[in-house]
């Protein structure tokens, strides 16, 4: 399965990177979103895959740490997902604002910081 997920992560990165190299602002945003997915999945996959068992300790019992998914990368990815949302929103606001000021969504027209 890791082979398949490696393909997914690789494709997400390839797609995201390709998109952020386009000229149009909105493609930049979609590229960023793809890259966010890619990074989350990379952290998740790299920590080892265990099917179906979450790190939830049963009431009154104990849990064998070898049998469940590693909780630490999950905690990392969880905040990363939410922060990724915040960053995407910020990028969107920036794009919108840029378009209003510069009057173009062409990145090649936005070469200078003085508008």
């Amino acid at each position: 399965m890791i082979l398949l997920l490696a393909i997914v992560v690789g494709s997400l990165y390839a797609g995201g990177l390709y998109m952020i190299m386009r000229r149009v602002l909105i493609k930049l945003i979609i590229g960023l979103a793809l890259l966010a997915h890619a990074s989350n999945l990379l952290i998740f996959t790299a920590s080892g895959l265990i099917r179906g068992r979450a790190a939830l300790v049963p009431a009154g019992g104990s849990l064998d740490f070898r049998q469940v998914a590693d909780p630490l990368p999950q905690a990392l990815a969880l905040t990363a997902i939410v922060i990724g949302f915040g960053v995407l929103a910020f990028a969107l606001a920036l794009v919108q604002r840029t378009y209003q000021v510069v009057g173009s969504d062409d990145l090649d027209q936005i070469r200078s910081t003085d508008t």
Partner: peptide
Amino acid sequence: VASSAGLLIGLLVL
């Protein structure tokens, strides 16, 4: 360029 970056990261995951 983007594909080779993706390939590299895929290898990294493996």
